[in-house]
Design a protein around this nucleic acid. Structure first.
Lengths: 122, 122
DNA sequence: CAGCATCCTGCGTGATACTG
DNA sequence: CAGTATCACGCAGGATGCTG
């Protein structure tokens, strides 16, 4: 079982590592309404960030695996062809939704309109 | 002025960008108790992640600037020598604290003991 | 449809040294 | 003390093409 690290591990830092990457949080958020298929998640990632190109399979696949490894989501493969795979939140993942909701809520209030990130940069 | 992007910008994605990096969240959390000096923040980053080495000035400096640009923290320079600079949360930054608290709280409950990130990796 | 294989690039992060 | 200047490196993330 890991290494039985008795020391503090700073939940905030752990969280940072866990959701590192550009899409993990959005994926979790997308999954809050129920299971979704690979392609659906992919499509969902497009809406809301028209500026960027489509997420590549390589990246999405990695994010999905990382989330699975973190225990936030679960992969369900409906055998055979044509391939059909669904991803759904685990219990842990579901417990995480309110946190993302809080994030989304805050973001809605404080950075939906303008400010920062763009003009304040240089 | 930015670009007056009228479309949805997905608060979650915006959040991701805003707190991207390994230390931003922790810095904000450290600042919740009041203003702190550059060196204090640096020291604070050490506790809780004994695995990694000390944060380098270059990195800390950038994180601080990014947070300032995001409008989460504010830099107060007490003129002259010897240099003394304090960083404190802005109003926006303070409103963000509860969110980090939620994150920390969740992390405490779900990844303080063991699991993920280590053994589930490969 | 749901991926994997390969190659490539930028940037986030770190180490070290120097300065006002 | 509070940074900046350089150099270096690994990895996240994207592009393209292929497969079961």
């Amino acid at each position: 079982m890991a290494k039985a690290n008795p020391a503090r591990i700073c939940p905030v830092a752990a969280f940072q590592r866990m959701i590192s990457g550009k899409y993990k949080l959005r994926i979790v958020w997308d999954l809050k309404d129920g299971p979704r298929r690979y392609g659906e998640i992919r499509s969902g990632l497009l809406r809301g960030t028209e500026g960027s190109a489509e997420i590549t399979p390589r990246v999405l696949s990695r994010e999905l695996k990382a989330l699975t490894a973190s225990g936030l989501i679960d992969r369900k493969d409906f055998g055979e062809v044509p391939p059909k795979v669904e991803y759904r939140l685990t219990r842990k993942g579901k417990s995480f939704v309110p946190v993302v909701a809080a994030i989304r809520d805050w973001g809605d209030r404080h950075l939906s309109e303008a400010v920062s990130l763009v003009d304040a940069a240089e």
